[in-house]
């Protein structure tokens, strides 16, 4: 790890101001990706700004949606009675992230800001039509994820919370990478008043994406069988030593069927 300074932000404004004042400031939001990267000396920062005391934790029911503070840890989402009742698929998703240590430290804001192409959360945001709240604006999930590890956030923009509209039904099914247990393919299916959404993580070269073909089939008939004839294009999918693109395409269909069956 290169030498760095560490500071706790007392609130969001403080975090933004510290970020503006640093050359290579980085927000510490659980650190489950950032800290190992820093330790490998694959990133450096002159200033680590820890958001853990910035008042960004907590889950609230806002009627039509559940609002989760950016610094809410995965374990809190996993065990929240409110989340389990309103969006059980989201609690289940959180319970399958990493291992217990990761879930005790990692946060939803950290995950969403990082937008790892194999992370679980982005699929939930996209399928549920969530809104990303930042220190300066609200961003619809559909506009938020812009590519692998890329988001609509400005350099000094800080996520404050994510709001998830309550769906009629939803389910997340993950086929984990056997080594890392990140999603090799993760499919989040949500049924809302505006129709069915299918978001896929772990598979796309550009990160999380919605699959129009699967959605169309499920909108016409919400059943596992209805997607049998839907082709999943593997040319836009990731290929690595664990799974080639065509296997991932096959798994998308299979995980979607399972998610639909569980809805």
């Amino acid at each position: 790890m290169y030498a760095t300074t560490y500071a706790k932000a007392k609130d969001v404004a403080d975090a933004v101001s510290q970020l503006k004042g640093a050359d290579e400031g980085k927000l510490l939001a659980g650190g489950q990706t950032l800290i190992p990267t820093l330790k490998q000396r694959l990133a450096s920062s002159d200033c680590l700004i820890d958001l853990s005391d910035a008042g960004l934790s907590g889950i609230s029911d806002e009627g039509g949606s559940i609002r989760i503070g950016a610094m809410t840890r995965h374990v809190e989402v996993e065990t929240s009675e409110m989340v389990k009742k309103a969006i059980p698929a989201l609690a289940a998703l959180a319970s399958g992230i990493g291992d217990r240590q990761v879930r005790n430290c990692g946060t939803i804001g950290g995950s969403v800001a990082n937008n790892d192409p194999s992370a679980c959360y982005p699929s939930a945001l996209l399928a549920l039509g969530a809104t990303v709240h930042t220190d300066r604006r609200d961003i619809a999930a559909g506009d938020y994820f812009t590519g692998m590890f890329e988001t609509a956030l400005d350099e000094d923009e800080v996520i404050t919370a994510v709001s998830f509209p309550k769906p009629e039904a939803a389910s997340y099914v993950k086929f984990p990478n056997p080594a890392s247990r990140y999603a090799m393919v993760g499919v989040f299916v949500a049924k809302t008043s505006s129709g069915v959404a299918v978001a896929v993580t772990g598979a796309g070269q550009d990160g999380v994406f919605r699959h129009g073909g699967l959605e169309a089939a499920l909108n016409s008939s919400f059943s596992a069988e209805s997607i049998d004839s839907v082709a999943v294009d593997d040319s836009v999918l990731m290929s690595d030593m664990h799974a080639s693109a065509d296997y991932r395409a096959h798994l998308i269909t299979q995980m979607t069927k399972r998610a639909v069956a569980a809805c």
Binding site: P117, M148, Q205, D206, M238, D240
Partner: peptide, 11 residues
């Protein structure tokens, strides 16, 4: 970072 090599190179 082998999982990301191919996607990154293509990108």
């Amino acid at each position: 970072g082998s999982r990301l090599i191919e996607s990154t190179a293509k990108k």
